[in-house]
Amino acid sequence: MLKINELHARVEEKDILKGINLEVNAGEVHAIMGPNGSGKSTLASVIAGKEEFEVTKGSVVLNGEDLEDAAPEERAHKGVFLSFQYPVEIPGVSVTNFMKTAINESRKARGLKDMPANEMLKLIREKSEMLEIDRRFLSRSLNEGFSGGEKKRNEIFQMAMLEPKLAILDETDSGLDIDALRIVANGVNKLRSKDNAIIVITHYQRLLEYIVPDFVHVLHNGKIVKSGGKELALELEEKGYDWIKNEAVV
């Protein structure tokens, strides 16, 4: 599904990713952990194609296709989804309208007609119920005045609506209380299948109790310094990141 080779990226003359190698296959869930500022969000942005970040070396390959020249919306059409760490506000645009536009734009890219209204209605109903989202919430301006938790839940709602092949969840757990975390994780798990893959970026292993990863990678200073199974998350929790930092120095 996703193959990242020797990826280097910089922003404003500053090298942030310094040689990332990662392979994610369909059906797998990978967790990326690491201290603040290690480059987790940058990696997510580079996969999603944010132009602000300059790829200086290496490649991101999705299903055999080098994404170098693909615009962010083209990557989205190919099934890449990013649940943002800090979702932006778009005043005056309702969640419903935003989703309708997103779905129809992706369909257009695939040569399909707009989704019929009743079909969309059904989809919205189904996904909002799954994530226990109040109907009224969908009429509100996108992320405007949403609490941290509402924003994250809304990101996962969008993921559920768009059914991506590769979903990257960037600190989706931050801002969620335990009940919301359970609901959101449950939603994510329902979307797991042998045909898609998920990358979960998180600080804490708490989320990983609910979304159990197949692999855990530790990112430090722009590099993956350690990889392992789900036990690695627990080990990290116990020993703290200093353990990794020290090990990385050695």
Binding site: P72, T101, A102, I103, L162
Partner: peptide, 27 residues
């Protein structure tokens, strides 16, 4: 730019993203 990238990431090209943001502004 962050608003536009957010829309792009959801499959909405920049032109359409601007239309969406402008419509919201004018609502």
């Amino acid at each position: 730019e962050d608003q536009i990238f957010y829309c792009n990431q959801r499959g909405i090209d920049t032109e359409k993203a601007i239309a969406l943001i402008v419509n919201g502004f004018s609502k």
